[in-house]
Each structure stands twice: as structure tokens, then as C-alpha cells.
Design a protein around this nucleic acid. Structure first.
Lengths: 222, 222
DNA sequence: CAAAAAATACGTGGTAGCACGTAGGGTAAG
DNA sequence: CTTACCCTACGTGCTACCACGTATTTTTTG
């Protein structure tokens, strides 16, 4: 029913997830929905970009957020910048507000949890394809709990973690002390402290307890 | 080819995962393998136990480790104790040695990562069904790296985290201080410190940095 | 080349987290 | 009833983490 620019009324999808099992599961879940066509699937952000270049007719990209290498959020930004007409639907295990906010800032049109049923998933795809948005119930609750409209505007700048910071974060996660990290990287302990401080600021965490959770959810550890 | 006690040569499977997408994905991945029959699927440990009681002919249970409520490890223990003939194949995102060791202690016959391909998964199922074991390459590496045969024998006692400890762990994860937790639970700050210490001892972590990772991997947070 | 960002580094100071030891009351299991 | 476990609680002391301010060198980017 919804008017679109593609010749037929079907919705063409690209699936992106590093787990073959999940890609396969989604594909098969959507098979009975005759108006939803999975025309391509990728196991990494890099591969997804290649497929986007060779598949001009895509309507919706369904992408996992936590992937090694290029994260789902980065991929979403790339899609927003290079193929603004394509709708992005995020798929994730988690629904902390930091992650949800990042997806919104990256231009995501919807956010579905991996616990979603077939019915919910296909509904979400049709909604975003029709130009609307869709959020799983738990995700919507997260958004309502923290009415931080500020974070979607102000904090939209750059929680970009640098290579060095990430390196230090990984050593922290392995329970190394500042001194140990300093000796391992041949830098001053003060420098490690500074990196630590910058990490906390960028992730808006109060301590390592929050930072580690951020790191795991964003797949920043090995 | 492998001789078995079931009338025909097919392997009867129970799938357990809280994510419908993954259950569906596995089911469809195994569909072409005519000797592997998915006869039941559950979305929780509780449901799995019910299905185990009503399906006597099961050969292999393929179960996800991180599920809300009853964890995969607990379920594996229950299967080992009540249906010792059934082979358990664990399925997980992670392969840290603590988790792998727990699965072995719980009587698991194999451990496959969620990144596994169709070929690897079906091979793993046939291996465990035939009485052998199977571990994904990364998992095997983990086992070889830490030849802590001690941990499989000595530490097999009880990293059992109590209800109260888990409650405190969740508050810690929300970045609350000892004092805040004490006030919230109407107990002394000293008591919170003791719980903290016991948590570190039971999980063999050096600090909260390690404990938080343990908690996330073991699905101990909300 | 100029501007911006990243990586490096120091000082001062507070306090929360953690080590280690000890112990009494409640409750469930043998 | 005894044993074991959980939850509760205190004391002492150390130090790693964190807050806040500042600044130079190197690299990247426009």
C-alpha cells in the first residue's frame, strides 16, 4: 500500500550481522512475508558497504550493532552520509540509553531487540520502510525514562574513542593497573591516567564499573 | 553409521535459546541435514525442563548459556543429574576460560560459538551425539592456553553466588557506591564491603573491573 | 601552512575500594 | 543436635583511582 519509488511494492532488505546463525534466522523468519525480500546479506560492516554499492534498489538495512571491526553505529553513519534514502533499522541485545541515543544520532529509523518475534520484526521493517519509526517496547521505555533531549542534540558531537584510548581500555579490562599499563606501553603513568579520564568523559561514566559495561556493549574489547 | 540406542539413525534435538531469532536460525540451518531432527525448542530453562520430561527420545540438547532466569549452566547441571544419557552442547558468544570451565564441570559435551557456520554446527552435533566432544577452535585455544586442570577439579566446588550478593552486584553495576548501596538496602556499609569481598573471591576477580565482565558474561545483571 | 585533534606529561589532593582478620545471629539440612 | 551456610558487622591500614588544572609535542586535517 505505501507509495514508494521502487517499481514494485516489495521492500528490499540488506541484512548485516556477524553471526551466520542470526542472519539465517532472520532470513527464514521473513520468508513467509512475501512483501519483504532479503536481497543481500553481509557478515561485516566492510562487506555491507560493498553490497550497498552494488545493490541500488535497497529500501531497508537491518543491522546488528555489535560487530567486530566496524560497529553498527559507524555503518549507520556511513549509510546516512552516502545513501540517505535508505532506512536503517538497528538490531541489538541491549537497550541502554547511551546506545539507543547513538543510533538515533547516527540516523537510525528504528531499534528492535533480538528478542523480537517474527510479527514484531516484520512490523518494524514495514514501519521504517514507510518512512515512520519503530522501537521495541523496552527501547521505548528507555527513551521515555530519560527524557534527555539534550543528549540527542548536545552530546551528538563525538564520543569517538581513539585508537590509543581503546588500546588502554583493553588493558584496563584485563585488570591491569595504571602502572602496569604504563610500563607495558612505555609511557608515563600520568599519561595513562589522562587517557582514563578522557575515556570516562567521552562515555559519561562515573568509574571503571560503567566504562567496562560500555566497552562490552560496544564491542571494544578484543 | 554410529550405532546408537534409538530405533532409527537420526539424531533428535532440543534447542534452547531465549532469542526466537536464533532458535529459528539454527532450526533452518539444520533443515538440510536430514539426520538431524529438531523435535522441540524452548525459550527458557524452565520450558526446556518441561519439554525434556515429555520428550523421552532426545539425543542432544543444544543450549544457549546466557538466558534470563535459569542460566544455561544450571540447565546443563539439571540435565546431567536427571537425564545422564542426553548429550549437552553449549552455545555461546564468549569463550573465556571461566565460562568454558563451568560448562565442562556441568557435564557439557561440547562448546560451539555463535559465530559457527552450518557445517561446523552440524559437525559438532554429530560429534557429541556419537559420544565424543567438540569445541570450536577459539574455545579449544582457550582451553590450551590455561592448562589449569586444577580449576576443573579444585574450583569445581561452588562459585554459587547468593541472592543477596547478586542484588548487591546489580547495584554496583549501576555505579552506586558502597555507602549508597548500604542506605538503599538498610544495612551497614561494612556489610556491603563484605559482600563485595566475597563476590571477588567467588569469581576470582581482582577488582570490580573483572567482576562486571563476569556479571555480564553470566547474565547476572537485570 | 594553519588549525584541530591526539598523545604525551606533571602536580595536588581526597576518598572509595580493597586486604586481612574476626565474629555473632538466623536458618536450612544432615 | 550439630553442621554448614548466609547475612550481618566491626577495625585498621594502604593505595589505586579519580577530580581538576595545565601544558608541550606530534599527527592529522582542512
Amino acid at each position: 500500500m505505501p507509495a514508494s519509488s521502487v517499481p514494485d511494492t516489495s521492500i528490499d532488505l540488506l541484512l548485516v550481522d556477524d553471526h551466520p546463525m542470526i542472519v539465517e534466522g532472520i532470513r527464514q523468519m521473513l520468508l513467509p512475508e512475501t512483501d519483504l525480500r532479503v536481497v543481500a546479506q553481509a557478515n561485516s560492516g566492510k562487506q555491507a558497504l560493498e553490497l550497498l554499492a552494488t545493490h541500488p534498489g535497497l529500501d531497508v538495512v537491518l543491522l546488528d550493532l555489535s560487530m567486530p571491526g566496524m560497529s553498527g553505529v559507524e555503518l549507520a553513519c556511513a549509510i546516512r552520509d552516502n545513501w540517505p534514502a535508505i532506512r536503517v533499522l538497528a538490531l541489538s541485545m541491549f537497550h541502554d540509553h547511551a546506545t539507543v541515543a547513538e543510533v538515533l544520532e547516527a540516523g537510525g529509523a528504528g531499534y528492535v531487540l533480538k528478542t523480537a518475534s517474527r510479527a514484531e520484526l516484520s512490523l518494524a521493517i514495514r514501519q521504517v520502510a514507510a518512512g515512520r519509526t519503530y522501537f521495541s517496547q523496552d527501547v521505548a521505555d528507555t527513551l521515555l525514562q530519560n527524557r534527555q533531549i539534550t543528549s540527542s542534540l548536545e552530546a551528538a558531537d563525538q564520543p569517538a574513542i581513539t585508537r590509543r584510548e581503546r588500546e588502554i581500555l583493553q588493558l584496563i579490562a584485563r585488570e591491569h593497573s595504571n602502572l602496569e599499563i604504563a610500563e607495558a606501553l612505555f609511557i608515563s603513568e600520568r599519561t595513562v591516567e589522562t587517557h582514563r579520564r578522557n575515556l570516562l568523559a567521552k562515555t559519561k561514566c562515573k568509574s571503571m564499573v560503567g566504562l567496562i559495561q560500555y566497552a562490552i556493549r560496544h564491542n571494544l574489547l578484543s
